[in-house]
């Protein structure tokens, strides 16, 4: 997997700081699971957090706190081996949200063969899986906030570039785009938005309140 589109520094820093909405955090953690370059960059930002924690004024623990923690420690040495992916397209962080496989996701039609499934995250932002049949387009739209789109299978192109497996597109307020899935295998993406999308044609706008896109 050759990944060409990566997470921005600001998103990685917010992820390290723990201030990203859960839906964005899910996309970031899923990309990191596929991309060791971003895993290393994320590790560097974590190290900044570690340095700040070292520097923060220490606050004395209450008396007996060590004993309280000692009392609840499990003395066995138990090393859990990492569980292999049930579905090779689905890294662990995403797997937790969909029960392991893309094959058991409950898709809802969005029209034109495009399907989606909303994932259960906190309400600050919405995470969804999108299924776009090969050669099909997603209705052209703009964004009120930020939209992150991570390709899990297949590929899409829009006005900016081509995005293949593992690639992450970051779209902001200024961007209007019409993503088109490449002919070939259907394109499956994990996307997150922090405000509803703004469609440019009437039909998607009409169904928007019902399908939550």
């Amino acid at each position: 997997m050759t990944i060409r589109h990566h997470i921005s520094d600001s998103l990685l820093m917010a992820h390290a700081a723990g201030t990203l909405p859960e839906a964005f955090g899910l996309v970031v953690a899923t990309h990191i699971s596929l991309c060791d370059d971003c895993r290393a960059r994320a590790g560097a930002f974590d190290a900044v957090g570690g340095a700040l924690m070292d520097e923060a004024p220490a606050a004395a623990m209450s008396e007996g706190s060590l004993a309280a923690v000692m009392a609840r420690l499990d003395r066995r040495i138990e090393i859990q081996r990492p569980i292999p992916r049930r579905d090779p397209r689905v890294p662990a962080p995403l797997s937790d949200y969909i029960g392991g496989s893309l094959d058991t996701v409950r898709w809802r039609p969005l029209g034109g063969g495009v399907r989606q499934a909303i994932l259960p995250t906190g309400r600050e932002a919405v995470a969804r899986l999108l299924w776009i049949p090969g050669g099909q387009s997603v209705p052209d739209h703009g964004h009120r906030g930020m939209e992150l789109t991570l390709v899990l299978q297949g590929a899409f192109r829009d006005e900016t570039d081509r995005f293949g497996p593992g690639d992450l597109e970051i779209a902001d307020e200024e961007m209007e785009h019409t993503p088109v899935a490449e002919p070939g295998p259907d394109c499956i993406c994990l996307a997150a938005t922090d405000a509803p999308l703004r469609f440019n044609s009437l039909l998607p706008r009409l169904v928007q309140p019902f399908v939550r896109i």
Binding site: E22, G25, A29, S33, A92, P93
Partner: peptide, 19 residues
């Protein structure tokens, strides 16, 4: 510590990359 804080304060998960 970061994950514990998010867990508690925002009642949200902090999705972690594959270990």
């Amino acid at each position: 510590a970061r994950n514990r804080r998010i867990d508690a304060i925002r009642k949200a998960r902090h999705p972690e990359p594959e270990e």
